[in-house]
Protein backbone atom coordinates (compact mmCIF):
# COMPACT_ATOMS: atom_id res chain seq x y z
CA UNK A 1 0.00 0.00 0.00
CA UNK A 2 1.37 3.42 -0.86
CA UNK A 3 0.50 6.50 1.09
CA UNK A 4 1.35 10.16 0.67
CA UNK A 5 3.35 10.21 3.91
CA UNK A 6 5.86 7.80 2.47
CA UNK A 7 7.15 10.56 0.23
CA UNK A 8 8.65 12.57 3.11
CA UNK A 9 12.28 13.54 2.79
CA UNK A 10 14.22 11.97 5.59
CA UNK A 11 17.57 10.51 6.40
CA UNK A 12 17.72 6.80 7.10
CA UNK A 13 18.14 5.68 10.71
CA UNK A 14 21.76 4.81 11.45
CA UNK A 15 22.65 2.85 14.59
CA UNK A 16 26.18 1.65 15.26
CA UNK A 17 27.13 2.03 11.61
CA UNK A 18 24.09 0.12 10.29
CA UNK A 19 21.48 1.91 8.25
CA UNK A 20 17.75 1.22 8.34
CA UNK A 21 14.90 2.73 6.35
CA UNK A 22 12.22 1.98 8.92
CA UNK A 23 12.14 3.89 12.20
CA UNK A 24 9.86 1.30 13.72
CA UNK A 25 11.57 -1.59 15.51
CA UNK A 26 9.46 -4.49 16.73
CA UNK A 27 9.61 -7.38 19.16
CA UNK A 28 8.68 -10.98 18.50
CA UNK A 29 7.17 -11.96 21.84
CA UNK A 30 3.65 -12.69 23.05
CA UNK A 31 2.00 -13.34 19.67
CA UNK A 32 -0.95 -15.73 19.65
CA UNK A 33 0.88 -17.86 17.06
CA UNK A 34 3.94 -17.74 14.83
CA UNK A 35 2.02 -17.16 11.62
CA UNK A 36 0.43 -14.02 13.09
CA UNK A 37 3.84 -12.86 14.27
CA UNK A 38 5.36 -13.25 10.82
CA UNK A 39 2.49 -11.42 9.11
CA UNK A 40 2.45 -8.64 11.72
CA UNK A 41 6.17 -8.02 11.45
CA UNK A 42 5.86 -7.89 7.68
CA UNK A 43 2.96 -5.40 7.97
CA UNK A 44 4.98 -3.23 10.38
CA UNK A 45 7.66 -2.66 7.76
CA UNK A 46 10.28 -3.07 10.51
CA UNK A 47 13.78 -4.18 9.63
CA UNK A 48 15.06 -4.56 13.18
CA UNK A 49 13.33 -7.25 15.23
CA UNK A 50 14.21 -8.15 18.79
CA UNK A 51 14.59 -11.70 20.08
CA UNK A 52 15.30 -13.21 23.49
CA UNK A 53 17.88 -15.82 24.50
CA UNK A 54 16.38 -18.77 26.34
CA UNK A 55 17.09 -22.40 27.13
CA UNK A 56 16.24 -24.91 24.44
CA UNK A 57 13.34 -27.09 25.48
CA UNK A 58 14.98 -30.49 25.46
CA UNK A 59 11.75 -32.44 25.27
CA UNK A 60 10.15 -30.49 22.46
CA UNK A 61 12.76 -28.71 20.40
CA UNK A 62 11.28 -28.81 16.94
CA UNK A 63 10.43 -25.40 15.55
CA UNK A 64 10.57 -23.60 18.87
CA UNK A 65 13.35 -21.25 17.70
CA UNK A 66 12.15 -17.97 16.29
CA UNK A 67 14.69 -18.45 13.50
CA UNK A 68 12.43 -21.07 11.97
CA UNK A 69 10.01 -18.27 11.17
CA UNK A 70 12.11 -15.18 10.55
CA UNK A 71 14.79 -15.17 7.89
CA UNK A 72 17.91 -13.55 9.39
CA UNK A 73 18.88 -12.47 5.90
CA UNK A 74 15.71 -10.44 5.66
CA UNK A 75 15.52 -9.07 9.22
CA UNK A 76 18.17 -7.60 11.46
CA UNK A 77 17.93 -9.69 14.63
CA UNK A 78 18.57 -7.72 17.79
CA UNK A 79 19.14 -10.00 20.79
CA UNK A 80 17.91 -8.65 24.11
CA UNK A 81 18.84 -9.35 27.71
CA UNK A 82 15.25 -9.27 28.91
CA UNK A 83 14.65 -10.93 32.24
CA UNK A 84 18.12 -10.11 33.59
CA UNK A 85 18.26 -8.47 37.00
CA UNK A 86 22.02 -8.05 37.37
CA UNK A 87 24.79 -6.65 35.18
CA UNK A 88 26.52 -10.04 35.35
CA UNK A 89 23.45 -11.88 34.00
CA UNK A 90 22.90 -9.31 31.27
CA UNK A 91 26.52 -9.62 30.15
CA UNK A 92 26.19 -13.41 30.07
CA UNK A 93 23.01 -13.25 27.97
CA UNK A 94 24.54 -10.66 25.64
CA UNK A 95 27.50 -12.93 24.96
CA UNK A 96 25.22 -15.91 24.29
CA UNK A 97 23.09 -13.76 22.01
CA UNK A 98 26.10 -12.67 20.02
CA UNK A 99 27.11 -16.29 19.62
CA UNK A 100 23.61 -17.32 18.53
CA UNK A 101 23.10 -14.36 16.33
CA UNK A 102 24.42 -12.59 13.38
CA UNK A 103 25.77 -9.30 14.70
CA UNK A 104 27.39 -7.50 17.63
CA UNK A 105 24.27 -5.58 18.59
CA UNK A 106 22.49 -6.08 21.87
CA UNK A 107 19.39 -4.53 23.34
CA UNK A 108 20.65 -4.24 26.89
CA UNK A 109 18.12 -4.51 29.69
CA UNK A 110 18.97 -4.74 33.37
CA UNK A 111 15.70 -4.82 35.23
CA UNK A 112 15.51 -3.48 38.78
CA UNK A 113 11.99 -4.28 39.89
CA UNK A 114 9.60 -7.12 39.11
CA UNK A 115 6.39 -5.17 39.37
CA UNK A 116 7.30 -2.18 37.20
CA UNK A 117 10.12 -3.77 35.17
CA UNK A 118 11.85 -0.42 35.47
CA UNK A 119 15.56 -0.49 34.68
CA UNK A 120 18.33 -0.73 37.26
CA UNK A 121 20.36 2.11 35.82
CA UNK A 122 23.42 1.37 37.95
CA UNK A 123 23.56 -2.23 36.71
CA UNK A 124 22.78 -1.02 33.22
CA UNK A 125 25.74 1.36 33.14
CA UNK A 126 28.03 -1.28 34.57
CA UNK A 127 26.98 -3.86 31.96
CA UNK A 128 27.12 -1.29 29.14
CA UNK A 129 30.73 -0.41 29.94
CA UNK A 130 31.83 -4.06 29.91
CA UNK A 131 29.96 -4.88 26.69
CA UNK A 132 31.19 -1.79 24.84
CA UNK A 133 34.74 -2.82 25.75
CA UNK A 134 34.01 -6.27 24.27
CA UNK A 135 33.01 -4.69 20.98
CA UNK A 136 29.24 -4.83 21.36
CA UNK A 137 26.98 -2.20 19.84
CA UNK A 138 24.87 -1.54 22.90
CA UNK A 139 21.32 -0.23 22.65
CA UNK A 140 20.47 0.53 26.24
CA UNK A 141 16.91 0.34 27.56
CA UNK A 142 16.65 3.01 30.23
CA UNK A 143 14.47 5.42 32.15
CA UNK A 144 13.51 8.77 30.68
CA UNK A 145 16.27 10.29 32.78
CA UNK A 146 18.69 12.68 31.10
CA UNK A 147 21.65 12.06 33.38
CA UNK A 148 21.55 8.30 32.88
CA UNK A 149 21.12 8.82 29.15
CA UNK A 150 24.20 11.07 29.05
CA UNK A 151 26.21 8.53 31.03
CA UNK A 152 25.15 5.72 28.70
CA UNK A 153 26.27 7.80 25.76
CA UNK A 154 29.59 8.52 27.49
CA UNK A 155 29.97 4.79 28.12
CA UNK A 156 29.91 4.27 24.36
CA UNK A 157 26.38 3.00 23.78
CA UNK A 158 25.32 2.96 20.12
CA UNK A 159 21.81 4.09 21.02
CA UNK A 160 19.92 5.10 24.13
CA UNK A 161 16.38 3.81 24.54
CA UNK A 162 14.27 5.64 27.09
CA UNK A 163 10.90 4.15 27.90
CA UNK A 164 7.59 5.79 27.03
CA UNK A 165 6.02 4.00 30.02
CA UNK A 166 6.60 0.61 31.67
CA UNK A 167 7.07 -2.47 29.48
CA UNK A 168 3.78 -3.95 28.35
CA UNK A 169 1.71 -1.24 30.08
CA UNK A 170 0.31 0.42 26.97
CA UNK A 171 0.14 3.74 28.84
CA UNK A 172 1.77 5.70 26.04
CA UNK A 173 4.32 8.48 26.30
CA UNK A 174 4.09 9.69 29.91
CA UNK A 175 6.93 12.19 29.84
CA UNK A 176 7.33 13.88 26.46
CA UNK A 177 9.42 16.68 27.99
CA UNK A 178 12.09 14.30 29.31
CA UNK A 179 12.22 12.33 26.09
CA UNK A 180 12.59 15.56 24.09
CA UNK A 181 15.33 16.74 26.41
CA UNK A 182 17.22 13.47 26.02
CA UNK A 183 16.92 13.70 22.25
CA UNK A 184 18.13 17.30 22.26
CA UNK A 185 21.18 16.54 24.39
CA UNK A 186 22.42 13.25 22.93
CA UNK A 187 24.40 12.69 19.78
CA UNK A 188 23.69 8.98 19.50
CA UNK A 189 20.25 7.86 18.25
CA UNK A 190 17.41 7.97 20.76
CA UNK A 191 14.89 5.16 20.30
CA UNK A 192 11.85 5.16 22.57
CA UNK A 193 11.37 1.62 23.79
CA UNK A 194 8.33 0.22 25.59
CA UNK A 195 4.97 1.49 26.75
CA UNK A 196 3.06 2.55 23.66
CA UNK A 197 -0.45 1.16 23.43
CA UNK A 198 -1.89 2.30 20.16
CA UNK A 199 -1.06 4.20 16.98
CA UNK A 200 -1.60 7.69 18.41
CA UNK A 201 1.02 6.92 21.10
CA UNK A 202 3.54 6.00 18.41
CA UNK A 203 2.72 9.14 16.48
CA UNK A 204 3.04 11.45 19.50
CA UNK A 205 6.31 9.75 20.42
CA UNK A 206 7.80 10.26 16.95
CA UNK A 207 6.58 13.88 16.99
CA UNK A 208 9.05 14.52 19.83
CA UNK A 209 11.82 14.16 17.27
CA UNK A 210 13.26 10.87 18.48
CA UNK A 211 15.05 8.69 15.97
CA UNK A 212 12.86 5.64 16.29
CA UNK A 213 10.47 3.62 18.35
CA UNK A 214 10.55 0.01 19.54
CA UNK A 215 7.42 -1.86 20.53
CA UNK A 216 6.14 -5.37 21.04
CA UNK A 217 3.03 -5.76 23.17
CA UNK A 218 1.09 -2.94 21.50
CA UNK A 219 1.13 -5.00 18.32
CA UNK A 220 1.19 -8.55 19.69
CA UNK A 221 -1.63 -8.00 22.18
CA UNK A 222 -3.91 -6.07 19.81
CA UNK A 223 -7.09 -7.87 18.81
CA UNK A 224 -5.81 -7.92 15.25
CA UNK A 225 -2.01 -7.76 15.48
CA UNK A 226 -1.48 -7.58 11.71
CA UNK A 227 -3.83 -4.61 11.34
CA UNK A 228 -2.26 -2.89 14.38
CA UNK A 229 1.22 -3.45 12.93
CA UNK A 230 0.09 -1.65 9.80
CA UNK A 231 -1.38 1.18 11.89
CA UNK A 232 1.89 1.47 13.85
CA UNK A 233 3.85 1.65 10.62
CA UNK A 234 1.73 4.55 9.38
CA UNK A 235 1.73 6.28 12.78
CA UNK A 236 5.52 6.11 13.00
CA UNK A 237 5.85 7.61 9.54
CA UNK A 238 3.18 10.24 10.26
CA UNK A 239 4.78 11.27 13.55
CA UNK A 240 8.17 11.54 11.94
CA UNK A 241 6.73 13.55 9.04
CA UNK A 242 4.97 15.91 11.44
CA UNK A 243 8.18 16.42 13.40
CA UNK A 244 10.10 17.21 10.23
CA UNK A 245 7.32 19.50 9.05
CA UNK A 246 7.46 21.47 12.32
CA UNK A 247 4.23 22.08 14.15
CA UNK A 248 2.50 25.45 14.54
CA UNK A 249 2.97 27.30 17.81
CA UNK A 250 0.52 26.61 20.62
CA UNK A 251 -1.73 29.53 21.57
CA UNK A 252 -3.95 30.08 24.57
CA UNK A 253 -6.47 32.07 22.53
CA UNK A 254 -8.26 31.42 19.25
CA UNK A 255 -7.12 32.87 15.93
CA UNK A 256 -9.68 33.00 13.13
CA UNK A 257 -8.78 31.05 10.02
CA UNK A 258 -10.99 33.16 7.77
CA UNK A 259 -10.41 36.90 7.05
CA UNK A 260 -11.91 39.28 9.60
CA UNK A 261 -12.02 41.98 6.92
CA UNK A 262 -14.64 42.04 4.18
CA UNK A 263 -17.51 41.12 6.44
CA UNK A 264 -20.96 42.52 5.51
CA UNK A 265 -22.37 45.47 7.48
Amino acid sequence: MTTAVETIRDEPLTIGGRTFQSRLLVGTGKYPDMDTMVRAIEASGAEVVTVAVRRVNLDRTKDSSVLHYLDPKHYFLLANTAGCYTAEDAIRYARLGREAGFNDFVKLEVIGDEETLLPDVQGLLEAAKVLVKEGFKVLAYTNEDLITALRLEDAGCAAVMPLASPIGSGLGLLNPFSVRTIKRRLRVPVIVDAGVGTASDACVTMEQGVDGILMNTAIAAAQDPVAMAHAMRLATIAGRAAFLAGRMPRREVAMPSSPTKGMLD
Partner: peptide, 10 residues
Protein backbone atom coordinates in the same frame (compact mmCIF):
# COMPACT_ATOMS: atom_id res chain seq x y z
CA UNK B 1 25.88 -27.25 30.24
CA UNK B 2 23.49 -24.64 28.95
CA UNK B 3 21.91 -24.99 25.52
CA UNK B 4 20.17 -21.82 24.35
CA UNK B 5 18.59 -20.36 21.26
CA UNK B 6 16.51 -17.38 20.17
CA UNK B 7 12.85 -17.21 21.10
CA UNK B 8 10.27 -14.49 20.70
CA UNK B 9 10.93 -11.45 22.87
CA UNK B 10 10.60 -7.69 23.02
Amino acid sequence: IELVHFVGGG
